[in-house]
Amino acid sequence: MKKLKLQDVVPFAAFIVIFVFFTIASGGKMLSAYNLRILLDQSMITIVVGLGVLFVAAQGSIDLSVGVNVAFSGVLATHISLRLSAPWLLIPAALAISAAVGLVIGVIVSKLKVSSFMTTIAMLIGIRGVVNYIQTKIGVEYLDVSLKILNEPYVKIPLFIAVTAVMAYLFEFTKLGRYSRAIGENETTARSVGVPVEKMKIAVFLLSGLLAGVGAIFTLISVGGSTNTMGNFLEMKVAMAIFLGGVLVTGGASARIYKVLLGAFSITIIVNGLALIGKSESQISETVEGILLLLILYAATAAARRDRRRSVKQAVASETSATEST
């Protein structure tokens, strides 16, 4: 029988508590078909972008540049597609630009050995400056109407499911996912086995950038145009979703696809639930999110330590029984 790890139970318990609390507090409004649609819609972008960042987090690194990358690739791609009057060019343009940003970060982190936290924070400052500058030149731009179809549920939802499925496949069933978790577990080990660590680091930042591009497309089609506030705060929302879902900050085997979904829905339910019970002010949701994040992170790390102590104890027990039997 597979033993449940305490560190994996904590985020589930938190999710259920949050869910039940707001369902009751909102008098069941939470579960209305209308509200469930909203929940899905509000979680979508966090999930899509989070699926990319998960690879980075699995390696024990972090990507705080995804929010600004959404804005950068979104604003530029919109402009390009409008200038060339090729509406559908939006998609490849957004993906190419965001992937390029990811690639640059990957190279800086892996080859120049600057910590990912520092690098992506610098990107967050720097690129946000560039986006604001571009915006002052070109102003708000609207997408071509032909792209409206993408925002129809029968297109958008299958698209979302497809992206999630592909990322789940890559993460759970390919070398990229396994090697990334190995790097997070122990980078020295991964290296001494022969895992191409540098290449894997570049690959995950590229992927994280690419998914930020997908996130940009989802944002653009639901908003209808580009503004410089695109992707604001998204990197934090994504990081929170991943950690609330139960991925340890050190990454490794604790990183799983389902945790991104779990964490993203937890956050959305908090924000949405607070709004349903009439507490929509940002300061309230910010406080609740901040404190919950602290509590859940604390519970998860403490649980991980407990799991570890328990297994070490087991090892010592089997060690002594082995020496006694010889």
Partner: peptide, 28 residues
Amino acid sequence: EALMIRDDILSNFVLPSLDTLKGALGYL
């Protein structure tokens, strides 16, 4: 340097063999 001691036995066993285990589309 050798093992991922916080990961499970399975993950440790397959780590060097992923190339031989993968099928079409890199499917493990």
